[in-house]
Design a protein around this nucleic acid. Structure first.
Lengths: 115, 115
DNA sequence: ATGGAACATTGATATCTGTCTATGTCTGTC
DNA sequence: GACAGACATAGACAGATATCAATGTTCCAT
């Protein structure tokens, strides 16, 4: 099943320095950046993305921060709802996987490497 | 004179999916993303970056939005203090210039194009 | 069934932020 | 020098958000 996530909207736009973003494009892309624009979420994203297999269990992530479990859960939810993390429950554990295509298109939108 | 701006901190880190960001790196990079993570600022950045000559006068930018002049001024200040826009006063007008190197390194950090 | 472990959700609170109006500062012109 | 235009700053306020403690839910083992 094909699911369109918020993160897919990053692929819709040319790089920032090519042509001006429309108001609609900006309101679609900004939430992606906002999801990343927080130190804890940035580290969470990085932790998951750089984890062996491209996925990480919540139990691993909780230990990496000096924050309560609900707080980590909240940040993971924000990243998930933005479409930057995929969620999968396996038994008692929940695994999050980084959507690298979303990160790639977002990165290309910010700083076009080909220019 | 060489001035180190907040935006330069984006070049310090390997891509998100290479290795986990440290807490210090995350707190340095997050403000850059936060500056961009707002629809108006994203459009402002895009407007300036895609403007002929790579720079734009505030007078041009004000007209592109249905917002008060102080609000635009505020957003430009945020982008400037993040190190994403350079500021130059010429006569009565103020010109903002996009720091494309900062955008490039930030984009590379988010989604590594070389991987 | 019962209990515990792994996460999520809820509700509360303090802080941050985007917007406005009003005002200040600087620059060029008459 | 007075005035007008371009832009910044200050202050106020409503809405968003990061955090926590408490509680709920789901799954597995005993």
């Amino acid at each position: 099943m094909l699911v369109l996530s918020p993160a897919d909207t990053a692929a819709c736009c040319p790089p920032l320095s090519r042509e001006p973003l429309s108001a609609e494009q900006a309101t679609q892309v900004a939430p992606l950046l906002k999801a990343l624009a927080e130190p804890v979420r940035l580290r969470l994203m990085s932790l998951v993305a750089s984890h062996p297999g491209g996925e990480a269990c919540v139990c691993d992530l909780n230990d990496a921060f000096d924050l309560s479990q609900p707080t980590i859960s909240h940040h993971l939810k924000v990243l998930h709802e933005a479409g930057l993390l995929d969620r999968e429950k396996r038994g008692v554990w929940v695994y999050y996987r980084a959507r690298t295509e979303a990160l790639a298109s977002l990165g290309a939108l910010i700083g076009d490497p080909s220019s």
